[in-house]
Design a protein around this nucleic acid. Structure first.
Length: 874
RNA sequence: GCCCCUGUGGCGGAAUUGGUAGACGCGACCGACUCAAAAUCGGUUUCCGCAAGGAGUGCUGGUUCGAUUCCGGCCAGGGGCACCA
């Protein structure tokens, strides 16, 4: 006779390893492309192989796995793949430190993290795994780049980079700290390089308007993308320069504005430091040249530009106001004007723009109000105007503005546009309406080794020549060193020398590699058929599996990754590699994992394992284990190495098991919000695992022979739970699912404690236990398999269908309605569920208790909301 | 500066989307079992009050028979973007 497994605690260590092996041996989660069931593609953002997985990964992949397992149970053919976003800078940094190859470090990390992910028991199709640094992957990426090139989706132009003048290398924004290179400490300079771009800005309008169709995306993300694309309607306007003040060859300055209505308030103009006019003026004014040089020493990141003090320099050039005869306006160079946006030049109206106001105040320029509140007269508005006051840009009425006086802002914009469209000089209209976008082309050139080589050859005679398809992939050389800063591809002795595919003469390979965002802009498509060695994608597989039905990842990718992927999918469709526009039908962005911070009495950060928490009357307190002294419990923050408030998933899975870790990650906090990792919380989850094991043990021991069943309270609870959990899983509200499952387990406990149970009661409990196991199976899959086996379920629970709820069991014959008097609850009354409002009102009026509370006050009105509430107004 | 989100017991949160505020969990307290502890089981747990009762969802107005939910103003915390013209 075999030992009763329920006499001891559930042994997660033994069970989890065993079920993981069963799933793997049976290839349970490998997806068959010809599976006839309706498809469902679940994808979590694939990880960068940084070393070890962290709790954020656990949360992300636990959520995705619940969706995947639930969809399997609902009868879908589920695609749930995993891979590695394996190119990137950290590998080069590690190579520099450890004097090894980036690939060695990357593949070692992948091996570690794969083992860690497998210990979570995820229902992943590992047969489809790939790493983006594998030539078998980036070969196809190079092929698509060349197809994009042919289709006119690629361009080459100059743009600015952060240049470290000591290390002679290009720096990423994060490598620039306080304007200095992170290793050399040298002041960073801006340098112009010719680089490769994908022409995403040609699709600004399309990418913006298609956001409306993404109805299963969070509103927040759509809004962020819309703001990033930044469509604006404005006017480009040509100002004539005062000839005596302008550099040779310059007679006009074209600006872009979204507030042409404020033109009468213009008191200065400003151009970007790299505007041609600024450069020309700099050649005749050494001080201006020095100022331009100073602007160039700002980093290229927006953050660097943002935090710099607003500065300007008067070029001495004067522009003629296009509407006020005789008014000459000074032209400044300003460090906050961007050459990339609009025309790189503006006019400033200090009274109605905060930044212009700051500038005018600093340089003592005129400030003239031109929009006033509707309620004031012109005279009152002029009298009330205060130079120091914050400018108002509220919608109002124009004044001090000639022919615009009395018009609304919108009408004035229209009038100005009409006026300048019909005026002209030099054979062109003075002003033109223009829709402008903030979105810029996507620069993909990186002067780095660990990325996908751009497959182009530069020939002195033929120019830039694509590498022929049959020569792909252009593979990274293995023999590289990182002891010197700079791009190893550039200084490699032989790699860059190649013959021109056109004329056959010696030529040079492109040594730039691609931005890693390119790698992640199509991996979801590659997963649909990663076995195709010849083509990036297989049309039938794309048609079958895309779009991704549910994409899950961090909010930090709300803009760039998702926007680039949306563009890339369109580009793939244009070049015949895909057949759709939007890659992600459903998107969910999960919150961070946060943890308390601890500091020793001496003020040093302490990690959670160095601290013991004691709970007592005075609340919780922390003790430093090593010293026995009190430690300070600090604020709850995102887990980070610097604050030491990290918890290692391996430790948690080792001491509590994967199911407990997953269960806790999903419980309590709504998934889109941050979750606080706490030891108490994990222990609570662990207790629930053991409770389930005990309940199943009782059900098995007592009720083995039972089957069938008649309605019973616990049956009703179980069927209600099926509906509630299913509904919440559909909406990814995992915390509520868990609450419903707790409820059901409580109902089962109560039913088991009832004295004098009959056969039917026993059968009902058994059925409820089976249902409970099925309901938590997506979240705690190992425990569910173990319980399923003990309860005599057939096959694997991973293959079992979701239980069907019997709607007739869920209906109640009588419900209790709350009774309010003047909106305050005063009592309850039991009424038949199907009672009409009139019946309910009659029952209420006949109820002695309610009438007693009323004390004979006349009833003015009785409001009956069926199945909800009754409100008596007296 | 602009945009977005959030604010409910000691704590995480729930509230059928305008209808019984505090489900479920954590913590705490009381009790049972135990020589004892752990584990487990039962009970209590928004606040004030002995009670009847009253107050209560950041603050403050409003709409409504009825507001955690909708609208206006404010406060606090978090996030994103940015000198975007």
């Amino acid at each position: 006779m075999r030992a009763n497994p329920f006499q001891s605690r559930y042994n997660f260590r033994e069970a989890e390893a065993r079920w993981q092996k069963t799933w793997e041996d049976g290839k349970v989660f490998e997806t068959k492309t010809d599976d006839p069931r309706p498809k469902y593609y679940v994808l979590e953002m694939f990880p960068y192989p940084s070393g070890r997985i962290h709790m954020g990964h656990v949360r992300n992949y636990a959520m995705g796995d619940v969706v995947a397992r639930y969809r399997r149970a609902k009868g879908h053919a589920v695609l749930h793949p995993m891979g590695w976003d394996a190119f990137g800078m950290p590998a080069e940094n590690a190579a520099m430190e450890k004097k090894s190859h980036p690939g060695t470090w990357t593949y070692a990390n992948i091996a570690t993290m794969r083992t860690q992910l497998k210990s979570m028991g995820l229902s992943l199709d590992w047969a489809r795994e790939f790493a983006t640094c594998d030539p078998k992957y980036y070969k196809h990426q190079q092929r698509m780049f060349l197809d994009f090139l042919k289709a006119g989706l690629v361009t080459r132009k100059t743009s600015k980079v952060n240049w470290d003048p000591v290390d002679h290398t290009v720096l990423a924004n994060e490598q620039v700290i306080d304007g200095r290179g992170w290793r050399s400490g040298a002041l960073v300079e801006q340098r112009e390089l010719t680089q490769w771009f994908l022409k995403i800005s040609d699709y600004s309008e399309e990418l913006l308007s298609a956001l409306d169709g993404l109805d299963r995306w969070p509103e927040k993300v759509r809004l962020m993308q819309a703001n990033w694309i930044g469509r604006s309607e404005g006017l480009s306007l040509r100002w004539q320069l005062v000839a005596a003040t302008a550099p040779a060859g310059f007679s006009e300055l074209e600006i872009y504005t979204t507030r042409p209505d404020t033109l009468f308030g213009a008191s200065f103009m400003a151009v970007a430091a790299d505007h041609p006019l600024a450069k020309a003026a700099g050649e005749r004014d050494p001080k201006l040249a020095a100022f331009l040089e100073e602007c160039r020493r700002m980093g290229t990141s927006q953050a660097a530009v943002d935090t710099a003090e607003k500065k300007g320099y008067d070029t001495g050039i004067r522009a003629m106001h296009p509407l006020v005869p005789g008014l000459e306006v000074p032209v400044y160079v300003a460090n906050f004007i961007l050459m990339d946006y609009g025309t790189g030049a503006i006019f400033g109206c200090p009274a109605h723009d905060q930044r212009d106001h700051d500038f005018a105040t600093a340089y003592n320029l005129p400030i003239k109000p031109v929009v006033r509140p509707v309620a004031l007269s012109d005279a009152e508005a002029n009298a009330a105007f205060d130079r120091k006051n914050s400018p108002t840009t509220d919608d109002g009425v124009l004044f001090n503005s000639g022919f615009l006086d009395g018009l609304t802002v919108a009408a004035a914009k229209e009038a100005i546009a009409k006026h300048f469209e019909s005026e002209s000089f030099g054979g062109r209209p003075v002003g033109q309406r223009k829709v402008n976008f903030r979105l810029r082309d996507w620069g993909i050139s990186r002067q780095r080794y660990w990325g996908c080589p751009i497959p182009v050859i530069h020939c002195d005679d033929c120019g830039t020549v694509p590498v022929p398809n049959q020569d792909l992939p252009v593979v990274l050389p293995e023999d590289v060193t990182f002891d010197v800063p700079g791009n190893p591809l550039d200084r490699h002795p032989t790699w860059k020398h190649a013959n021109c595919p056109c004329c056959g003469k010696p030529a040079r390979r492109e040594t730039d590699t691609m931005d890693t965002f390119v790698d992640s802009s199509w991996y979801f498509a590659r997963f649909t058929d990663p076995f195709n060695a010849d083509e990036p994608t297989t049309p039938a597989a794309i048609a079958k599996w895309l779009p991704v039905d549910q994409y899950i990842g961090g909010i930090e990718h709300a803009i760039l990754h998702l926007l680039y992927s949306r563009f890339f999918t369109r580009a793939m469709t244009i070049t015949g590699h895909a057949s759709l526009k939007e890659p992600f039908a459903g998107l969910f962005t999960q919150g961070m994992v946060v943890h308390e911070t601890y500091k020793s009495a001496a003020g040093a950060w302490l990690s959670p394992v160095e601290v013991r928490i004691e709970a007592g009357d005075g609340g919780r307190r922390a003790l430093e284990i090593a010293t026995g002294k009190d430690a300070v419990i600090g604020s709850i923050e995102k887990m980070s190495k610097s604050r030491k408030n990290v918890v290692d998933p391996d430790d948690i899975i080792e001491s509590y098991g994967a199911d407990t870790a997953r269960w806790f990650m999903l419980s309590d906090s709504p998934p889109e919000r941050d979750v606080i990792w706490s030891e108490e919380g994990v222990q609570g989850a662990s207790r629930f695992v053991q409770k389930v094991w005990r309940l199943v043990g009782e059900a098995v021991d007592l009720l083995k022979a039972q089957s069938g069943g008649t309605p019973h309270a616990v049956t009703k609870a179980a069927h209600k739970a099926i509906l509630a959990v299913g509904d919440d899983l559909e909406r990814l509200r995992f915390n509520r699912c868990i609450a419903h499952i707790h409820d059901l387990s409580n109902s089962i406990s109560s039913a088991l404690a009832e004295p004098g149970r009959d056969t039917a009661g026993n059968a009902a409990i058994r059925e409820a236990v089976v249902i409970m196991v099925q309901l938590f199976a997506p979240m705690m899959p190992h425990l569910a398999e173990e319980c399923w086996k003990e309860l005599g379920g057939s096959g694997l629970i991973a293959d079992a269908l979701w239980p069907a709820a019997d709607a007739s069991l869920v209906v109640e014959a009588v419900i209790s309605l709350p009774i309010q008097i003047n909106g305050k609850k005063r009592g309850d009354i039991d009424v038949p569920t199907d009672a009409s409002p009139a019946d309910v009102e009659a029952l209420v009026r006949a109820d002695a208790k309610i009438m007693a509370i009323l004390e004979g006050k006349p009833i003015r009105k009785v409001i009956v909301i069926p199945k909800r509430i009754v409100n008596i107004v007296v």
